[in-house]
Design a protein around this nucleic acid. Sequence first.
DNA 1: GGTCGCTGTTAATGTTGATTAACATCGTAC
DNA 2: GTACGATGTTAATCAACATTAACAGCGACC
Lengths: 193, 193
Amino acid sequence: MAEVSAPPTRRLEILSAAAELFARRGYHGVSIGDLGRAVGLTGPALYRHFRGKEALLAEMLLDISERLLSEGRRRVAAAGTPDVALDALLRWHIDFALDNPALITVHVRELGNVPQPERREIRRLQRAYAEEWVRVLRLVHPGAAEDRARAATHAAFGLLNSTPHSTGELDRATMARLLHAMASDALTGAFRS
Amino acid sequence: MAEVSAPPTRRLEILSAAAELFARRGYHGVSIGDLGRAVGLTGPALYRHFRGKEALLAEMLLDISERLLSEGRRRVAAAGTPDVALDALLRWHIDFALDNPALITVHVRELGNVPQPERREIRRLQRAYAEEWVRVLRLVHPGAAEDRARAATHAAFGLLNSTPHSTGELDRATMARLLHAMASDALTGAFRS
DNA sequence: GGTCGCTGTTAATGTTGATTAACATCGTAC
DNA sequence: GTACGATGTTAATCAACATTAACAGCGACC
């Protein structure tokens, strides 16, 4: 009786398992059979839930990009000043990366395997998310060139997204503080002089 | 008469083309045929130069890891103080990343596709290179915990290795200065408090 | 001037893997 | 109690692809 109607459970389960596998072995390194096995099914069963392997990846990346962008925008809008907005972006990205290391990895690496119509849309969302950072950065550092703000943003993403590779040396709270301190200082340093 | 004996030209040519392709489309996304075509040959011709596709990747990653480690050590040894040593590591890594964006990308992403005997060796070299950073960092910041220094090192690598994704917004010299400033500040921030 | 090693080529070979077909189960709405 | 949609399964199908075989040119060295 606890079940409501349980429609998308399987889909989410598959997407979650796929994220782990894609992150570990890469999109082409994981077969439909592997994917099915990871959720206790056979390969072809996946076609009851997704149009195909590419569609599965596309949906995964689309979802990540939308979550990053929409929550990023929400937090910026809720912030009173540019400094607070930048801090909010930092905290949001760090939380997301620490909670979803596999998603971050796939998001960074596998865009090239998404077929065209969706690829453009994902790229658009990724760009919009980065532009949110660029916009806030240029409010915090008036007069900063757009080029430089964009490059600094990508470098900060690189730092924050490196999380998946530092597997469990530090506990989560410590890691979050460390990343915040490092990224925050890096972004300040980017506009000094 | 300008030719000396030209033995390994082809091998290097293939490795270079392979780096570009692997970086762009991933190891499994590139076929032996693609690789051959990229250097004006057919696929099977590559077997005259490499034992196979995996061996080619292994050699590539081995070479990168060795270059990073040996030159990194050389520069640290040549430095008079820990601060200078850290600066030397930063400059070396930045130069390497800016000069070889494709190699950096492959180095970060494709270790999982290298077969076992070589994979362990590459991992050993990568670890040794990172430990060089950790060692120097702990000399610069006495009392810093090893865990934290290691996590900070990986985060700095993430920042520096993000270069390939910022394609040509800034000219090289500007980009080098930006990365230096950001990474340097990030590493300072990692040990504040 | 003949042989051999090096580098290529094109034609198999064999495997893997994505996708589809054909067929089963089963709960639910009528 | 029966038809149907949802969800699975196993057995094709079909295309890629890594690797190997068989064969050819060619320069160097005797």
